[in-house]
Nucleic acid binder design. Structure first.
Lengths: 234, 234
DNA sequence: TAGTGGTCTAGACCACAAA
DNA sequence: TTGTGGTCTAGACCACTAG
């Protein structure tokens, strides 16, 4: 009641409700009024307050249960959105001139550890791609991919000379599911050489395994130069 | 038309539409039918298809503009949700027994680099907290916080002996905004000692600066033991 | 069993951007 | 100017679950 009560605008209602949560008027675990009561208070229909409540629930601020009512989340598990863009876009966005250099491309036996990760026989042959990305001429990251030849028909080393694998894949084999792992490792020797950094420098490694529907596309390993930061927020 | 056309269920409609996008029936940049047409096709009201379309738009698959219609996103910037839970919850979720050990707590001058990050005069005095977390008895991560005393009144070293700062903060000073940076570093000597790892081991460092509204709460540095992985997916 | 949220309808008006 | 999505209403029925 003391807080604003802009009428009949679900965004305003959401702001008002969020305000009560964040200011502590409603504390974690508290039961908040039912939709009908809120609708009466805000002088609108149940659908409208429902939309505001639904939005807050998907954002993790509220827990909702039929018959059980709506409560303020006890464990506000905030999710920070981590963008997964095309590599060159990421560099461009940061304001740098993009450089791309194909190091190696060709069919290869899958790396032992990578095979184990995928639960595949390492007898399987993959299209192995190694490339270097530069930002303003400075080595920025190394990408190493293993792609399942059957799912990337048409992708040739010639194409890769001009176009990063990311771009080709986005247009030709869009992923529908991916698993991502982020960890800190010592840069392996070949990566350290390519990035022109000291061997055993700390490197941020992003590993991504991607599928199109249930069909495996491949595995991506991204080694970043020391000092590289992943930035996000809530 | 060829794809399923389950009637009057927005989730089914969303599945159907997403199927057309991911199977390539509708390609990036394509204009898709208007709400009225889709409503006719699925034999439901505009509100219902609208909900499905809105959902796909917020997920990044569609771009919508008044009068301009709805198009398939050309740049599907997929966002991987990175969870930011209470530390002990994270360990518990992974199935381990949680250990917590306060190493140091007391007022201190803010660290030089940390002060620069915040744009604060390093003359400011902060509550400095260092703690060790264990998973099944094994050192797991080191947290180092600098908290602005004015915003955490009531938080004493005695409380911190028993309760991780995270838990106290969640209940008493919930954050409304945070900036998060993730990078790979060499573990500093004191951190390496506490984690019982070799000096200069690669460590995943998560840095978080948090605010309540516009009021700075403090800075958190989390050093992880080598091998620790952040896992997410899309 | 009863009460709560989840969904859908059929209609209306409005805001914005393209033509 | 006009067509599109964005939002709201007033009502209804249903699904889940707490008591």
């Amino acid at each position: 009641m003391t807080l604003s009560s802009a009428k009949t605008d679900w965004k305003a209602i959401r702001r008002d409700l969020l305000g009560r949560i964040q200011s502590g008027v409603w504390k974690p675990g508290d039961q908040i009024p039912r939709e009908v009561e809120l609708a009466a208070h805000y002088d609108c229909t149940r659908s409208t307050v429902g939309r505001a409540l639904r939005d807050l629930a998907t954002a993790g601020f509220l827990d909702r249960k039929r018959k059980g009512g709506t409560t303020v989340s006890a464990n506000p598990v905030r999710k920070a959105p981590l963008e997964v863009p095309i590599i060159s876009e990421a560099i461009r966005k940061a304001g740098y001139e993009v450089g791309y250099q194909l190091l190696r491309a060709g069919e290869r036996q899958l790396d032992q550890t990578a095979a184990a990760e995928l639960g595949l026989p390492d007898a399987a042959r993959f299209l192995s791609i190694e490339a270097l990305y530069l930002a303003d001429g400075t080595p920025y990251q190394i990408e190493h991919r293993w792609l399942l030849p059957a799912t990337v028909v048409g992708l040739t080393p010639e194409i890769l000379e001009e176009m990063p694998a990311d771009e080709w894949l986005l247009r030709n084999v869009p992923l529908t599911r991916a698993q991502i792992m982020i960890e800190a490792v010592h840069a392996p020797k070949d990566v350290a050489d390519a990035l022109q950094i000291a061997p055993d420098s700390p490197s941020l490694l992003i590993r991504r395994t991607s599928w199109r529907a249930t069909q495996l596309i491949g595995v991506l390993h991204l080694y970043h130069a020391p000092g590289h930061r992943l930035v996000t927020g809530i």
